Simulated scan of single mutants.
Amino acid sequence: MSNCVTGLLLGLLLVASTQSFAQSSYDETWSLGFGAPDYMEVWIETADVVDIRERVFRRAGSGIASVLTPSDNKGKPAGWPKSPGRGAGRDVIGADLPRLIYVRWQSLAEPQTYEAYIVIPESARAIMRKPEKTFCKADGKWITDYRANIGIGLAPGGIAKVWLGGPCLKSVEIARVLGTINPKGPYEGKSGGKHRPLSEASKAYIEKFGIPYGSW
């Protein structure tokens, strides 16, 4: 009798799980990108994604974050743009909607190595699922667009700010996380404590004006 009950419960769980996956399936390919304030250069060691099916996509992002470094010191690193783009990144192929994003990065302006766990709320996934009619200035047409771009801004002090956007849609903020210092240091302790070098333009700006902590 107990075996029958156990089998029935397992069957119900399997059906419920299958229905949950079917309902949560996301038809659009979504992308993950990274940016940083002017001169505040960032190197992403890894960005790992866990989707709502609990599948892990390691190194979904890595490398240089998008950043401007004008040589004439006319950049404006304080604060964030009103509607930031995705930044440097790529599509997360094969993933369902994200539940968690782990980022480990080098803040070259300080220098310091941070890590952050960014929990994506259900309200953000609802936004990603919602199609919107919008006028696209690029080709002068009305289209149906999705906010399928996740852009993460990384700033000194361990700040990670997250936006959702689309090619023809304004970005909306969904999260702000304060990361923690990675105790192992850059490259998980495999570089003898050495971070990647800062560019000459950024170094010159920071030496003259400092880092605008508290503006992000």
Rank of each mutant, 00 (worst) to 15 (best):
G151M: 03
G94C: 08
E41M: 01
L100R: 06
A155S: 14
Q106L: 06
G94M: 01
A47E: 01
E115S: 08
P121Y: 09
G75L: 04
G210I: 13
A148E: 03
S199W: 10
S66H: 13
P186R: 02
A36Q: 08
S215V: 11
T180S: 05
D27Q: 12
G157W: 04
P81R: 14
V162F: 05
L12G: 02
K130S: 10
L13H: 03
D27R: 14
R90E: 12
G153F: 03
D139F: 15
A138I: 15
W216G: 13
Y187D: 14
G189Y: 07
G87E: 03
V67N: 05
R196Y: 09
G158T: 11
Y205K: 13
S25Y: 11
P37W: 08
G7D: 08
A201N: 00
P98K: 12
I93S: 08
P212Q: 11
D27F: 07
E41W: 00
S83A: 13
G11P: 00
I152D: 01
T6L: 00
S25I: 12
Q19A: 14
P84D: 01
G192S: 05
I127M: 15
P212G: 10
E173N: 14
T46I: 08
A47M: 04
A148D: 03
F21I: 11
G157I: 09
T180C: 05
L198W: 01
L169K: 12
P84M: 05
R125A: 01
G210R: 12
T134V: 15
Y117S: 14
A47G: 05
E207F: 04
E45G: 06
R59W: 09
I174Q: 10
Y117G: 09
S123A: 10
Y187C: 07
E28P: 05
K203F: 06
E110H: 03
A22H: 12
Y102R: 05
A88W: 03
G79E: 06
T29E: 08
S202A: 07
I52L: 03
G140C: 14
N73D: 08
Y146T: 14
S17F: 11
R129S: 08
D48N: 08
P77D: 13
A175G: 07
S31K: 13
Y213C: 11
L10F: 00
E115G: 03
L12P: 03
S62R: 07
I127W: 06
V103H: 04
T18Q: 13
K82L: 15
K203E: 07
L198E: 05
I181N: 09
S215H: 07
R55F: 06
C136V: 11
T69W: 08
P131R: 13
G61E: 01
L169D: 09
Y26P: 01
T134C: 15
Y39S: 02
K74P: 01
A47D: 02
V103D: 01
F209I: 12
S2F: 15
A65R: 00
S20E: 11
L164A: 00
L97I: 06
R55E: 06
V177N: 08
